[in-house]
């Protein structure tokens, strides 16, 4: 097939091109600088303190559940780090669950079994068309309404309790020795590792919501592989499974990974909806910090920077995966 190739630009045209791009980049930088400078000047004129010095002051507030050890006398910076750790603590498992479950649902939509196909289709439509915030609230109130109060916790196994305070499990480390066992207290379960209802609701809500999108991505990726490929493979005597593993999947993955990355990015950002159901992730902690210190511009800039870094990291990881899957496809 003939491919149209643009003629090579003349040297003059190339320089014009470079000059134009430099001009646009310069204008953008100037605009950004002007925004920052005007903000700083206006804030100074109105006697509003600005700067990031507050990060090293003691936070003063507590964080209900934290992967990192946190106390209210620790610095604001450490509180934000604990918030970020909590974001990752929910985002990473949710990415894993949504990808696996979503792939299964996506394959189910291509299944020759009518019932399975319709069920998977219904799942996708139902989850995709209800706002995530509502789903999170629903999960949360289901979890907290169904479970018994902490004082009447269900004991599932020795030192494993399930209650409105969440799922308490034995965990390594702690105050007295190798294993930290949850104990039934007068009012509450203490010790061990706890998965709170907030965490569980967020994990389930994010996973199942994103799985619906992942399913569509997987379905579309596989459907995009020309039909002739499968027909050829089956004609050559490959089994259905071999056809899928060796012919369909390698070609489909190239189309699946980029949109899949978008889903993973959205999932991480959607984790910030946790403020509605009381899970202390990054935005929740930053909101509290904003309220205590009044440094609105700084706190919001920090949140934006952290999400930008997270997104760039994810995109970079995905590009790497894409290159790898490309090699895989070429090899097979």
């Amino acid at each position: 097939m003939p491919i149209a190739v643009a003629p090579a630009p003349t040297p003059a045209a190339r320089w014009r091109n470079i000059g134009l791009q430099a001009l646009i980049a310069g204008l953008l930088l100037a605009l950004l600088w002007w925004l920052i400078d005007a903000t700083a000047t206006n804030m100074r004129e109105r006697g509003i303190r600005s700067g990031f010095d507050f990060l090293l002051e003691p936070a003063g507030f507590g964080i209900g559940e934290s992967l990192l050890p946190f106390d209210s006398t620790d610095s604001v910076l450490w509180a934000l780090a604990a918030g970020l750790a909590n974001t990752l603590r929910v985002a990473l498992p949710a990415i894993l669950i949504s990808t696996l479950f979503g792939t299964l649902v996506g394959l189910g939509r291509l299944s020759p079994n009518l019932l399975l196909r319709k069920l998977c289709g219904a799942y996708v439509e139902a989850l995709r068309n209800v706002p995530l915030l509502l789903q999170l609230l629903a999960w949360y109130f289901i979890v907290t309404d169904l479970l018994p109060a902490a004082s009447e916790a269900l004991q599932l196994a020795p030192h494993v309790f399930l209650s409105k305070s969440g799922l308490s499990l034995p965990w390594l480390g702690g105050d007295g020795g190798l294993l930290n066992l949850p104990q039934r207290g007068a009012m509450n379960i203490s010790g061990g590792a706890a998965m709170t209802p907030e965490y569980l609701a967020l994990l389930l809500g994010l996973s199942f919501y994103t799985a619906a999108y992942v399913a569509e991505t997987v379905r579309a990726g596989i459907a995009a592989v020309p039909r002739g490929q499968s027909e050829a493979a089956l004609a050559l005597g490959l089994t259905r499974l071999q056809n899928f593993r060796l012919v369909l999947l390698p070609q489909a993955l190239r189309g699946i990974i980029p949109p899949l990355t978008n889903q993973h990015l959205s999932l991480t950002k959607n984790a910030s909806l946790a403020v509605a159901i009381g899970y202390p992730e990054l935005v929740s902690v930053a909101n509290t910090t904003l309220n205590q210190t009044g440094r609105a511009a700084e706190c919001i800039a920090l949140i934006m920077a952290v999400y930008l870094i997270l997104s760039l990291l994810t995109a970079w990881l995905s590009a790497w995966l894409e290159r790898r899957s490309g090699r895989w496809a070429d090899r097979s």
Binding site: G64, T144, K164, V275, A276, S284
Partner: peptide
């Protein structure tokens, strides 16, 4: 352990549940 909610309604719903 504080359990922090953004909205008043969610915070009291959680408490009364």
């Amino acid at each position: 352990k504080p359990v922090v909610f953004e909205k008043f309604e969610a915070s009291i719903k959680a408490f009364f549940s």
